[in-house]
Write a protein that binds this DNA or RNA. Structure first.
Length: 559
RNA sequence: UGGGGAGUCGCCAAGUGGUAAGGCAACGGGUUUUGAUCCCGUCAUUCGUAGGUUCGAUCCCUACCUCCUCAGCCA
C-alpha cells in the first residue's frame, strides 16, 4: 500500500510504517527532521537523507525541521552551519519554521539530567577515560560497576551542579546514565551523558562548560520538537534502546520512534566526512566544493542539478540492506535532467586546424539551441575558411565502423555543409597538423544527392570562436570502493587524471553566460560555467559535468 | 567466539503464503545534420545454502554460510 498522497512514490519500509501509523490513528500527520552536526560540509549521503526526510514531509503534507546537533563545540563552526543551510535550500527544500539547534535545549537538557539523578538513574563518575574503558568490558565480557556508581542522590545533585559551575577540570568527572553494566549492548553499559569541556560554543559562547552527549540529546530534542519519525542510518540501530530508555524515564509525553536505513555507498567515491576532510586538508582536492568532491557544494559546482540529485535519490530508494550504488545511476539521473534543460552549443577542446579551400560563396544559417525545444531559441552558426574541429574526429587509418572524417572521406559539419578532406598536412614528425578540405556548396540545409553522408562532426570558425578554459573531470578514485580495504589507505587509489585542464574554444553564444549556466557541448557532454572562476564576457571557465552516453567509444574499444 | 542487522538480475529495489514490479546498466532494432535524445524489443522457472510445514513458500519453521555493525568523556 503506497501513500495516498503520492501514488507515484516507490514503496519502502518507512512509508509502510508511516502509512500504518496514519491508518491506525497513532499520528494525524508526520514530523521529520534533518539533524546534521555543523562540523563539515554536506555530501551525497546527506543528500539522500535530506531527500528522504523532507520528501516524506512533502508527500504526507507533514513538516520537516532542520536541527543542528551542536553538542560538540570543539568541532563545530558557523561556516559549516551556514553552508549546510545553503545546501539544503539549493537542493530545493525548506524546513519548517526557524532553524532548530540542540543548544536551544541546553537548559531543558540540564533539568532533565537533574530529573534522572533524582530518580536514581544517573550518577557522577570520577573514573578516568582509561578506567572507564576497562570497566566497560568487551564485546564478549560484561562490564563492572564503577566504584562511584552508588553515590547517593544528594551527592550526585551537588556534584553535577558543581560540574556545571566549573569547579572541576575538563574530563575530571562525567555524568552517566545508570542502566546495566552487563548489558550485551555496550551502549547500555552506563553511557556518559554529560562531559566537562571548556570550549567556546558557536551559539552559547562560554556559558556552559559541560555539554550533553549525542545519545542523551538527540532523543530529547526529537521529543521536544514533536518529531514523529526519527530517521537515521543503520549504525545508530544499537543506540535505539538507549534512545527509548532516556525518553521512557523522563517526564516527556512525546516519544518519537527511531527508524534506521542503510547509508549510501557510491562507487568511485567516498562518503565519510572524516576522509573528505582529509582530502581537503592535504590539498589533494581544491577545497570542499572541488567539483570532484561528492559534497553537495562540489556536485553543484560540477554542474549537477538539484533536480538531478533528487531524481538520483528517488532511484536508489531506501532500505536496510547493504548497498553499493553504481555511479551510472547518478550519471543517468543527471543526464536525464540536463538533457531536457541544457541548451546545445559547440565547443572544441582538442583542436585540429581545417582550411576550407573553396569557401567562396558559402553562407551560414541559424541553429536551434535545443533540438526538441524550439522555444529555447536559435543562434547564428558562424563559418569561415579557417576552422577547428576535434582532433579525434579525423583518422588517417580509421577503424571499421568509423563515421567521422578521413582522407578522401566526407562528413557533415554540424548545422552546415558536407565537407570532404582532400589533404592532411603533417609536421616533421608525421603528426597531422592541418586538414585541407572542400565543402559541397549544395548541401547547406539539405542532403547531398546521390550519396549518403553518415558522419556529423562539430566545428568552430577560428575568427568567431572564443577561447575558454575547460576543466575535464573524471572519477576521483580509480577503484569502485576505495575505502573497502582497511589495510590500504584510500588515498593510494586517488585518480591522478581526475582533473585535466585544457584551453579550448567555444562559440560566441556563450560569451555572456552567468556562472552556473548549463550547456551541452554537442557530442562532448554537459558543461557548466564555474561558480567561482567564470567571468561573463571575460575569462570563460567551463566544468565538465558528465559526458554524453557514447556507444562509439565502447564499440571502438571492443574492436 | 557477545549483541544488533542484512542477503531478490551486473547495480539499486518492490513484493509477500497463490505461483518474481520498476529503475539504472547491458544487448538487438528503428528515427536522427549530436555514434546524444527519442521509440520498439530482449534481459530472474527464480529470491544466500540445506532441510521442514503446506495443495502451494522468496514469504512460515530449523540449521548453516556470507557480509555489515557496536567496546569515544564524537555524532
Amino acid at each position: 500500500m503506497s501513500s495516498p498522497h503520492s501514488p507515484a512514490a516507490v514503496s519502502n519500509f518507512i512509508r509502510t510504517i508511516i502509512d500504518g501509523d496514519l491508518a491506525s490513528g497513532l499520528h494525524k500527520s508526520i514530523v521529520t527532521r534533518f539533524p546534521p552536526e555543523p562540523n563539515g560540509y554536506l555530501h551525497v549521503g546527506h543528500a539522500k537523507s535530506i531527500c528522504l526526510n523532507f520528501g516524506l514531509a512533502q508527500d504526507y503534507q507533514g513538516k520537516c525541521n532542520l536541527r543542528f546537533d551542536d553538542t560538540n563545540p570543539e568541532k563545530e563552526s558557523e561556516e559549516y552551519a551556514l553552508s549546510i543551510q545553503e545546501d539544503v535550500r539549493w537542493l530545493g527544500f525548506q524546513w519548517d519554521g526557524e532553524v532548530h539547534w540542540a543548544s536551544d535545549y541546553f537548559d531543558d537538557l540540564y533539568a532533565f539530567a537533574v530529573e534522572l539523578i533524582n530518580k536514581g538513574l544517573a550518577y557522577v563518575d570520577d573514573l578516568t577515560p582509561e578506567e572507564m574503558r576497562e570497566y566497560r568490558g568487551t564485546l564478549t565480557q560484561a562490564g563492572r560497576n564503577s566504584p562511584y556508581r552508588d553515590r547517593i542522590v544528594s551527592e550526585n545533585l551537588d556534584l553535577f551542579a558543581r560540574m556545571k559551575a566549573g569547579e572541576y577540570a575538563d574530563g575530571a568527572k562525567v555524568l552517566r546514565a545508570k542502566i546495566d553494566m552487563a548489558s550485551p549492548n555496550i551502549n547500555m553499559r552506563d553511557p556518559a551523558i554529560y562531559r566537562i569541556r571548556r570550549a567556546h560554543h558557536i551559539r552559547t559562547g562560554d556559558k556552559w562548560c559541560i555539554y550533553p552527549m549525542y545519545d542523551y540529546t538527540h532523543c530529547i530534542s526529537d521529543a521536544l520538537e514533536g518529531i514523529t519519525h526519527s530517521i537515521c542510518t543503520l549504525e545508530f540501530e544499537d543506540h535505539r534502546p538507549l534512545y527509548d530508555w532516556v525518553l521512557d524515564n523522563l517526564s516527556i509525553a512525546c516519544h518519537p520512534r527511531q527508524y534506521e536505513f542503510s547509508r549510501l555507498e557510491l562507487h568511485y567515491t567516498i562518503t565519510s566526512k572524516r576522509k573528505l576532510l582529509q582530502l581537503v586538508n592535504a590539498n589533494l582536492v581544491n577545497g570542499w566544493d572541488d567539483p570532484r568532491m561528492p559534497t553537495i557544494s562540489g556536485m553543484r559546482r560540477r554542474g549537477y542539478t538539484p533536480e538531478g540529485i533528487r531524481e538520483f535519490s528517488k532511484r536508489i530508494g531506501v532500505s536496510r540492506s547493504g548497498n553499493s550504488v553504481d555511479m551510472a545511476i547518478m550519471e543517468g539521473a543527471i543526464r536525464e535532467d540536463l538533457e531536457a534543460r541544457a541548451p546545445r552549443v559547440v565547443a572544441v577542446i582538442n583542436p585540429l586546424k581545417v582550411t576550407i579551400t573553396n569557401f567562396e560563396g558559402a553562407s551560414t544559417r541559424e541553429a536551434d539551441f535545443h533540438p526538441n525545444h524550439p522555444e529555447f531559441g536559435k543562434r547564428f552558426v558562424a563559418i569561415s575558411s579557417a576552422l577547428v574541429i576535434e582532433a579525434d574526429d579525423f583518422a588517417e587509418a580509421p577503424p571499421s565502423g568509423w563515421k567521422r572524417l578521413t582522407l578522401g572521406g566526407e562528413v557533415r559539419l554540424r548545422h552546415s555543409y558536407v565537407m570532404r578532406c582532400d589533404e592532411a598536412v603533417k609536421d616533421e614528425n608525421g603528426k597531422v597538423i592541418e586538414l585541407r578540405c572542400s565543402i559541397d556548396h549544395a548541401t547547406l540545409g539539405k542532403n547531398p544527392e546521390g550519396r549518403k553522408v553518415k558522419g556529423v562532426i562539430h566545428f568552430l570558425s577560428c575568427e568567431h570562436a572564443l577561447p575558454a578554459e575547460i576543466r575535464l573531470y573524471d572519477r576521483l578514485f580509480t577503484v569502485a570502493e576505495p575505502d573497502a580495504d582497511k589495510e590500504v589507505d584510500f588515498c593510494t587509489y586517488l585518480n591522478p587524471d581526475s582533473l585535466t585542464v585544457v584551453q579550448g574554444w567555444v562559440e560566441a553564444a556563450v560569451q555572456d553566460a552567468a556562472p552556473e549556466t548549463h550547456y551541452q557541448f554537442e557530442r562532448l557532454g554537459y558543461f557548466c560555467t564555474d561558480r567561482r572562476d567564470h567571468q561573463p564576457g571575460g575569462k570563460l571557465v567551463f566544468n565538465r559535468t558528465v559526458t554524453l552516453k557514447d556507444s562509439w567509444t565502447k564499440e571502438a574499444g571492443s574492436l
